[in-house]
């Protein structure tokens, strides 16, 4: 993953609440088997409306999206994060995010910035004509109008973003601890691993060794 330290540029001053992942990327785009190219389907239904914010030349290619409460609710599809990343978005600012979406955003190098509604309202105004900067070093959102809003991020997630760390690789390094846990589980809850013995249902798993 590419490290992210600052995201700076124009921002879509959208502010819409309860934007679900069906709006971010409609279901019919989910048939792909790849992560790339989903930017074309991002906000498709919004973009079908004339005068929509995503086709406003003032914000073309903006790396930041400012949204309302509960951004990314609904379906857990990570395609939503891939679509945003593919359209060039590196940070989303909102008063709250759905848990699943914010997890997916992190894993794809998108910073979900939580700010109070007043700050978001102010940014919606400022972003009409000024660039916005999300700085992970100082943990602030600033504008050319001297606005300065501090925000919080989970320290581990912040580190992963700033160093571009691969979470799977980090966990694989904990292999000994996982094996130890499995050993104890084998004693305490043996039935967890025993289900294969009863697999008289139609399952195949040819590649299993």
């Amino acid at each position: 993953m590419t490290p992210v330290t600052t995201v700076s540029g124009s921002a879509y001053p959208w502010g819409a609440k309860n934007i679900d992942t069906d709006v971010i990327i409609p279901a019919h785009w989910l048939k792909t088997i790849s992560r790339a190219g989903l930017g074309r389907g991002a906000f498709e239904t919004v973009r079908a409306q004339p005068g929509n914010i995503f086709d406003d030349p003032r914000y073309a290619g903006a790396p930041i999206l400012i949204a309302g409460d509960n951004f990314g609710c609904g379906s857990s599809r990570e395609h939503a994060a891939w679509a945003l990343a593919d359209m060039g978005i590196r940070a989303v600012i909102a008063p709250s995010f759905s848990d699943i979406f914010s997890g997916n955003a992190f894993k794809n190098g998108i910073v979900p910035v939580v700010l109070p509604q007043e700050a978001v309202d102010r940014l919606l105004e400022a972003a009409q004509d000024a660039p916005v900067t999300v700085d992970l070093e100082t943990m602030t959102v600033t504008t050319a109008y001297q606005d300065r809003f501090p925000f919080q991020l989970d320290p581990f997630r912040r580190q992963c973003l700033m160093e571009g760390l691969d979470e799977v690789g980090l966990t694989l390094a904990r292999d000994t601890a996982i094996s130890k846990f499995e050993g104890a589980m084998h004693e305490r809850r043996p039935w967890i691993e025993e289900r294969r013995g009863y697999a008289d249902v139609a399952v195949e798993g040819a590649g299993r060794t």
């Binding site: 857990s76 990570e78 395609h79 699943i100 997890g103 997916n104 894993k107 979470e167 799977v168 694989l172």
Partner: peptide, 13 residues
């Protein structure tokens, strides 16, 4: 529910 990166994480670890 989890996202696809987490699906990969669970499969691997």
């Amino acid at each position: 529910g989890i996202g696809t990166s987490e699906v990969e994480h669970v499969l691997a670890t």
